[in-house]
Design a protein around this nucleic acid. Sequence first.
DNA 1: TCTTTAAAATACCGTACGGTATTAAATTAG
DNA 2: CTAATTTAATACCGTACGGTATTTTAAAGA
Lengths: 203, 203
Amino acid sequence: MGRGRPRKMDPETVLDIAMKVFWDKGFDGTSMNDLACETGMAKPGLYACFGDKESLYKKSLSHYYNNLGTPLIDELRNSPDPLKVSVRNFLTKVANSMLDKSSPSGCFVVNSLVQGASQHPAMEKIGRDFDQNRRNTFIDLFDKAQKKGELPPDADAKALAEFFSAQSLALGVLGSSNATKETLSSFVDVAMTALPENSHIEE
Amino acid sequence: MGRGRPRKMDPETVLDIAMKVFWDKGFDGTSMNDLACETGMAKPGLYACFGDKESLYKKSLSHYYNNLGTPLIDELRNSPDPLKVSVRNFLTKVANSMLDKSSPSGCFVVNSLVQGASQHPAMEKIGRDFDQNRRNTFIDLFDKAQKKGELPPDADAKALAEFFSAQSLALGVLGSSNATKETLSSFVDVAMTALPENSHIEE
DNA sequence: TCTTTAAAATACCGTACGGTATTAAATTAG
DNA sequence: CTAATTTAATACCGTACGGTATTTTAAAGA
């Protein structure tokens, strides 16, 4: 148990709020005063606890990925379902997350890729890392599925994997432009038709 | 012929440069000093010529759409080719535009949708208008194609149209994350497999 | 209780922002 | 040549930014 004055705000709670503010308003659009005001932690406290603005942004983005990205990706990776089912589940959940009114619109990782493209290489890199992590999971998954016979032997498993991984980018932008549930749902339906069946001759 | 001191910079040239700066650094990441410096037109000149920052941003985005978006969309709309060919052409050209080293990465419209999502409704609206214009063109095109028998009668032409229109959003984000030519090219290949053929019995 | 520790709260610093008032320069109409 | 007009160029204003030094407050150890 620490000795000094007790914290008013739990840092994890603060990080969760900071994440939403950065996600909502972007790096340049968010001021440290905004963050202090929204989180309830005064500015010097933020600096003491999280470092400077860029550092807090990176921690917020990691927090996002750990809490909202990783669970979906883990579920995809560990799903016992057929490829078609688990991919559809993944995209459906991404689409549904775009409709959650309690979170900012769109996808924080997509925002980071787009916003950090030229001016904030450090924060684009971490977004790119997360994007690549998801892509690698898809590649693994499609590779194994092909070996299990769930994809035609002549299918380009890597290209398919990258395509489906990238559909979450489109969903992220659609989320930012407030697409409807119906639009997102039929978007996923059409995307799924790009996944070929293996018309094999077993059993 | 005007009476006063002649302009140093052609406003169209200035707008073209401003477009690239906003496209590159975003609305919040671009200062009026940046613009004055890059365009060669001093700050009061920018205000006299284009209004305030938001107004200049809107004009830059319109300039982008008129010069880089509309030609592609018009070509798509007026193409005499089969649907499959014209859609592939469109996506290929969007993908190739992501590789143009002389322009900022990504897509200015996608950037505007993502960045303006919460803080700058006015500038998101114009991005959304452009996005909708493209979507409507796709919907028209797919509708007519279906009536011409280029799509199966039971296909959901509108859903297909919105899906393919939204693929440019994914390409825009892929462009922002510096995807390679190969990635973009096989992305388009896979996307095209979602376009069903009409296995009809004519001729 | 009294010191030590750690955090909260306030006030503050230098700088860069969006935007403008003012002055200087270049052109044309008379 | 002069007056009128339009733009360029400079300097400037109030404000908000990222970041910090300083003081106050609340707990724990001795």
